[in-house]
C-alpha cells in the first residue's frame, strides 16, 4: 500500500475520531441530564412532571426511530443554521449529536431506574434535597451502567459516522465507499474495516474496564 493511501487512511481515522469525540461529548452533555430527568419526573417521583416526561419521551422515541441516514438529510436546514454549512466533517457532527443525545438519555434513564428505590427513600429520610439525591446517590450508584451505556453509544457513533459521507462528511466510512467501492480498491476497503474493528474493540475493552473499576458491587480479590 502506497504512503499516499496510508496518509489518506490516517486522515480519515482522525476525522472519524474527531466526529465521534465531539458528538459523543455534546451528546452526553445534552442526553445525560435529559436521561436523569426522564428517570425522575414520572408521577410521584423526585421532580414529578408527568406531562413533560411523556412529551419528552415521545420526542426521544421519534428521534430514535428515524433511520440515521434519513435524519442526516432531514435536518440539513438545521445543520446549516448551527454549523454554517451542511457539508463537511464539522457539519456532520450536528446529526451525529442529535442521534446520540436521545440514545444516551435512554441509557442513563435505564441505569438510574435500576438504582434501588430504597436508597431514594433513605436519602429523603436523611433530609436530602432532590438535587442532592441525583448528584450524590443516583448518578454514582448508576455509574457502572452509565459507563457501559456510553461505550455502546461510542460504538454506534462509529457506525453512524461511516454514513455521513453522504453529506460530504469525511472519515473512514466515506473513504471506504469512495476509494474501496467506487474506485475498486479492495485493499482500502479492507484497511478501513480493519481500523474500524480495532477502534470498536479498543472502545469496548476500555469501557468495560472503566465500568468494572467504578462498580463497587463486585467483590475484589
Amino acid at each position: 500500500m502506497s504512503p499516499e493511501l496510508l496518509r489518506l487512511i490516517l486522515a480519515a481515522t482522525l476525522d472519524t475520531l474527531y466526529m465521534v469525540a465531539v458528538s459523543g461529548l455534546i451528546g452526553t452533555l445534552v442526553g445525560g441530564p435529559l436521561g436523569v430527568f426522564l428517570a425522575t419526573s414520572g408521577r410521584g417521583e423526585l421532580f414529578a412532571a408527568p406531562t413533560t416526561n411523556r412529551v419528552l419521551g415521545v420526542v426521544v422515541n421519534a428521534t430514535r426511530s428515524t433511520p440515521f441516514i434519513i435524519l442526516v438529510v432531514a435536518i440539513i436546514p438545521f445543520t446549516r443554521l448551527i454549523a454554517g454549512t451542511s457539508i463537511g466533517t464539522t457539519a456532520a457532527i450536528v446529526p451525529l449529536t442529535i442521534a446520540a443525545a436521545p440514545f444516551i438519555a435512554r441509557i442513563v434513564e435505564a441505569a438510574i431506574r435500576e438504582v434501588d428505590q430504597g436508597l431514594i427513600e433513605a436519602s429523603q429520610a436523611m433530609g436530602a434535597t432532590p438535587f442532592q439525591i441525583v448528584r450524590k446517590v443516583l448518578v454514582p450508584e448508576a455509574l457502572p451502567g452509565i459507563t457501559l451505556g456510553l461505550t455502546l453509544t461510542v460504538v454506534s457513533l462509529l457506525a453512524n459516522s461511516a454514513m455521513v459521507g453522504a453529506v460530504g462528511g469525511g472519515g473512514l466510512g466515506d473513504l471506504g465507499i469512495r476509494y474501496g467501492y467506487q474506485r475498486f480498491m479492495p485493499e482500502v476497503m479492507a484497511m478501513v474495516v480493519l481500523v474500524l474493528v480495532v477502534l470498536v474493540q479498543g472502545v469496548q475493552s476500555l469501557g468495560e474496564t472503566l465500568a468494572k473499576r467504578v462498580n463497587r458491587r463486585l467483590r475484589r480479590p
Binding site: 434501588d116 430504597g118 427513600e121 433513605a122 436523611m126 446517590v137 450508584e141 463497587r216 458491587r217
Partner: peptide, 13 residues
C-alpha cells in the same frame, strides 16, 4: 434517624 430492613447503603461508597 432511620434504619431499614435492607440497610439501604450506597454500594458506591
Amino acid at each position: 434517624g432511620m434504619i431499614f430492613q435492607h440497610f439501604n447503603l450506597l454500594s458506591s461508597r
